[in-house]
Simulated assay, not measured.
Amino acid sequence: MSKSVLVVLSEYGYWAEELVGPLEALDEAGYRVDFATPTGKRPVPIGVSLDPEYVDPPLGRSVTTAEMADKGRRLDASSRLDDPINLAAWLPDRPYRSEPDFLRRQEEYFRALAAELSKADRYDALLIVGGSGPIVDLANNGRLHELILHFYRTGKPIAAECYGVACLAFARDQENRRSIIDGKHVTGHCIEYDYKDGTGFEGTDFVIGPPPYPLEYILRDATGPDGAYIGNFGRETSVIVDYPFITGRSTPDSRLTGDKLVEVLDKGLRTWGFVPRTGVVAPEPAAAGDR
């Protein structure tokens, strides 16, 4: 039986290559892929991620090839992203602690949550796509946190890219409030890649300066003294596998993130991209770096 992957996307803009890259790897592996968004709206790519002439400010060059822009436009024009799963309709919302009869409401919440989360058991892995949009509606999305925790507790792989990795840092058991990536090795959008100005979101004219939080600092803190954030700044690619997590730094790492997720599912890969217990970066594979 072929494997199934649930892909979660922001409604405020995903970076096209960060969906196209892993999706190509999953398709080639013959997996079934379902898509989900916070409220069931159709996800849309960030406009500049479809423009090969757009110069990425931190890097001073285009990060989108003409071929990738075409792939992103064709995917967006297809019906494939129509009718995504609505996380708000699927999973209950945690009650405020100030609500009347909170104890009874909390008990009912956990009963309803367990029943609904069992529907996620048909999936073998979870993937959270990056871009600026996740800052708005994924990073602090309680329903997505519960979904991540369910995959984590059932021992299934969880992949995340770019600013989508923030969701892992904020997914926490309410008993101890500790991040699930505590003690793990992860990568994510390094501070050298952050914009100084022009962070924008689809579906709104809201444009700000730098991202509202530096993801690198959050990941460094969330992984704790026994884990590590590995930025790999200066290397062409940065993907870290520290099971059950597969994390990709940014756009050039998109296909490699998908490839490693397939290796985790099909070949039992558990550690890749770092030397365990030291946090020292392993040599970058030549074949993986030329993207």
Rank of each mutant, 00 (worst) to 15 (best):
S2W: 15
G21N: 02
E28F: 12
G30R: 12
G30H: 13
F35P: 00
T37S: 08
P38I: 07
G40L: 07
G40I: 05
P45K: 12
V48A: 11
S49H: 10
L50Y: 05
E53K: 11
Y54W: 07
D56K: 07
L59K: 09
G60K: 04
R61Q: 06
R61T: 05
A66F: 02
E67S: 03
K71F: 02
K71W: 00
R73K: 13
S79H: 12
L87G: 04
L87K: 01
L87M: 09
P92K: 04
R94C: 11
Y96G: 13
S98I: 12
P100C: 11
D101K: 00
L103Y: 09
R104I: 14
R111M: 02
A114T: 15
E116P: 02
K119L: 08
D121E: 10
Y123W: 08
D124A: 05
A125F: 03
L126C: 01
G133D: 10
I135T: 08
L138C: 05
A139N: 02
G142I: 02
L144G: 04
E146Y: 06
L147Q: 05
L147E: 05
L149C: 08
L149V: 13
Y152A: 03
G155Y: 02
A159F: 10
A160V: 09
C162Y: 09
G164F: 14
V165G: 01
A166S: 12
N176Y: 15
R177T: 13
K184G: 03
G188K: 05
H189Y: 15
K196D: 13
K196Q: 14
K196H: 13
D197A: 06
V207H: 11
I208P: 03
P210W: 06
Y217N: 14
I218S: 06
L219G: 03
R220S: 14
D226C: 04
D226Y: 13
G227C: 02
A228L: 06
F233V: 09
G234W: 04
R235N: 13
I240Q: 11
I240H: 09
V241M: 09
P244V: 00
R255A: 01
R255P: 01
L256G: 03
T257N: 02
G258A: 01
L261S: 03
L261H: 02
D266N: 06
K267F: 02
K267C: 01
G268S: 11
V281M: 09
P283C: 05
E284H: 02
E284A: 04
A287E: 13
